[in-house]
Design a protein around this nucleic acid. Structure first.
Lengths: 158, 158
DNA sequence: GTCCCTGCAAATGGTTTGCAGGCGG
DNA sequence: CCGCCTGCAAACCATTTGCAGGGAC
């Protein structure tokens, strides 16, 4: 669950890519006079393992009992978000969810969410990026971004 | 915007277009053993006048003082949403906003929201509708829908 | 040793709900 | 009159925050 060092449940899976990220996390933290604490490390590990959006509570639940407070999870995720190490997603249910961000990745992608079982599929490409320019120009807006999520019923729930 | 039939929303002001909708509201309510109360009428009127997404609190504030309780506003909007007379939008700030729906209109459109002053521009066309089919097919999902909103800085705030 | 970080608990803000009385049809 | 509706207040849920002690560096 949250021992960062010697667990390799996906020896050649996504975890392999993430292993090198720990030092980077430490480095980025120190740059801003922040500390690499156990709680932050544990949360980071959980996100690295579960490669789909997780809510604060879900992350908290994955934590070895009593590893840290729920409030700390909230605070840590804000910090990680500011550091651009996670990206927040909003599925419209009033709960923030976070995904780990690879270095240099801005994390821009969308999801397909099952409205029955909450299964999440990642949609690789973004179809609307080019549209931002058009919309920006037509309305005189700058610094344009967008949020897009798809909803439906997954094969198993049909 | 979205009045397909015989409404001329701007020629004589928005109220002209909406006037005929009252009986429809009453009719739809009665169908389900619901009543046309003062509160519901007032809320309906406010939405008809302000043709952009309004939060519960904003609607409540527009109400003549003491016209009804905030809880009633929430309850009324749920009812109107179930009746497909309003559509809920989510700008990602944890507040539900509602727009009046013309009869037969499913209200599918998107917004461009200023992240500084919260000004809202309606985006007429939906660019992603055709994509739903593709995404549905690729992932075996059915009953697909999507949420898409744009954010940026409006001309006045730049 | 200095600040940052954390646990705890209380506060916040949006939204929902239980209940008893009120009013529309 | 019969239920649906409403006001009021308390409950809920996600999230935030104040504070004092604890830990990273």
């Amino acid at each position: 669950m949250s021992c960062p060092d010697h667990h390799h449940q996906h020896a050649h899976g996504p975890a392999a890519a993430g292993r090198a990220e720990l030092p980077e996390l430490a480095h980025r933290l120190r740059r801003q006079d922040r500390k690499l604490t156990g709680a932050r490390q544990a949360i980071f590990e959980i996100l690295r393992r579960q490669r789909h959006p997780l809510s604060n509570k879900e992350i908290f639940a994955e934590l070895p009992a009593g590893d840290c407070d729920l409030a700390t999870v909230y605070r840590s995720l804000h910090l990680l978000e500011d550091m651009r190490m996670v990206k927040r997603f909003d599925f419209g249910d009033g709960v923030a969810r976070y995904e780990l961000l690879a270095e240099g990745d801005d994390g821009h992608h969308h999801h397909l969410v099952c409205t029955r079982c909450a299964a999440v599929v990642e949609i690789a490409e973004c179809f609307t990026r080019e549209l931002e320019d058009t919309i920006a120009r037509q309305n005189g807006f700058t610094a344009i971004s967008h949020k897009l999520e798809f909803f439906g019923i997954c094969p198993r729930c049909q």
